[in-house]
């Protein structure tokens, strides 16, 4: 676990630099065990920064989502670096963003945090409901220690660990300017057993499974908004002309939305799990993303967000790509 004093010291050094505009990190949330993003503009703000297993957000999203307000006439745009704290999974978003030329490497300053896993806040809240006073989560050995004013409790690590961490291949960031702690070796992998199980079911059964999920969708677009890969100026899925899908919330349009969203992430999703985390109606979006991830890996030996020099998956081909499905 990264030492918080070291983290703040480093943050202070970074935000004091002339060529750095701000630092995106984490600070405690307003209640319970939550943490939330912090946008640190100056050295006096660094004392609120933390890194704990509650720091679930993928901060890479904010780099591409930050609105570029019109630059007033006669002024220059502020092109200084943005510093960002990233876990292993978050760093893959940076790699993928750079593969997609969202920005040049020198535009960001990356503080890498080798990650031993974060919690699934839903699991925490199920176990400790209605905690209003601020609490803290720390990892000690193979246990999460949750402390509030009311006391301290220990829970086995795997009980609260986020699902994405249970499948994480890259706990240590793949891109960084500075690593804030010792590297963490891979402690998990994805065996896709649930995906394979679902694949095997009959067509009608699968449709029914997904119809139930998609029928819950309220088309709030949270999954898209939080995604570090979804940052088009004008999302094609909301456009009216041509209209790929109606805005009305019914199962056909919702299904179309989810097909489109998942397909747009094929070969791009870096498995940070943010979409599913923010879904207010608990649609298992990662089961869609992981299906593509698995196929892309099996068919094309391609893993998004691991090498910024890779050509985009669907902008390239091999002459001997599989074609046994073609008549």
């Amino acid at each position: 676990m990264v030492d918080v004093n070291k983290l703040r010291e480093k943050a202070k050094e970074v935000v004091s630099r002339d060529d750095v505009r701000m630092l995106i990190g984490y600070r405690p949330g307003t209640y319970g065990f939550r943490a939330r993003p912090a946008f640190v503009q100056g050295p006096d703000e660094v004392d609120e920064l933390i890194f704990t297993p509650a720091c679930v957000n993928n901060l890479a999203s904010y780099i591409v989502l930050e609105e570029k307000l019109p630059v007033p006439r006669g002024e220059e745009p502020d092109l200084r670096k943005v510093a960002v704290m990233v876990k292993g999974c978050d760093s893959r978003a940076l790699v993928q963003q750079m593969e997609e030329k969202a920005y040049d490497r020198e535009r960001i300053l990356v503080l890498g945090i080798p990650c031993t896993g974060v919690v699934d806040m839903a699991k925490v809240e199920a176990r400790f409901p209605n905690v209003l006073e601020r609490g803290e989560i720390a990892l000690e050995g193979d246990k999460f220690v949750l402390s509030t004013g009311g006391g301290k409790e220990e829970v086995a690590k795997e009980e609260l660990l986020a699902d994405k961490c249970l499948r994480c291949r890259y706990p240590t960031p793949l891109v960084y300017d500075e690593l804030l702690d010792a590297e963490v070796a891979r402690f998990a992998d994805d065996d896709y057993s649930d995906i394979v199980e679902l694949e095997k079911r009959a067509g009608a059964e699968k449709w029914a499974y997904w119809e139930e999920k998609f029928s819950r969708c309220i088309r709030c677009y949270s999954c898209r908004n939080v995604c570090p890969m979804c940052y088009c100026e004008d999302c094609v899925l909301e456009r009216l002309n041509p209209q790929w899908m109606r805005r009305s919330v019914d199962v056909s349009e919702n299904t179309a939305y989810h097909i489109s969203r998942a397909y747009h992430l094929a070969g791009r999703c870096i498995q940070c799990g943010e979409c599913q985390r923010v879904c207010p109606v608990d649609i298992p979006l990662m089961e869609l993303n992981r299906k593509f991830y698995k196929d892309v890996e099996e068919l094309y030996d391609y893993e998004p967000g691991t090498n910024a020099e890779n050509p985009p998956l669907l902008s390239t081909f091999k002459v001997d790509d599989r074609e046994d499905f073609i008549l």
Binding site: E100, K101, A102, Y231, C232, E233, D234, P311, P312, L314, S315, T316
Partner: peptide
């Protein structure tokens, strides 16, 4: 050019 995000997918392919 108003909506292009400059990802270069088209350039590559």
């Amino acid at each position: 050019e108003d909506t292009c995000r400059g990802c270069g997918f088209c350039v590559e392919l």
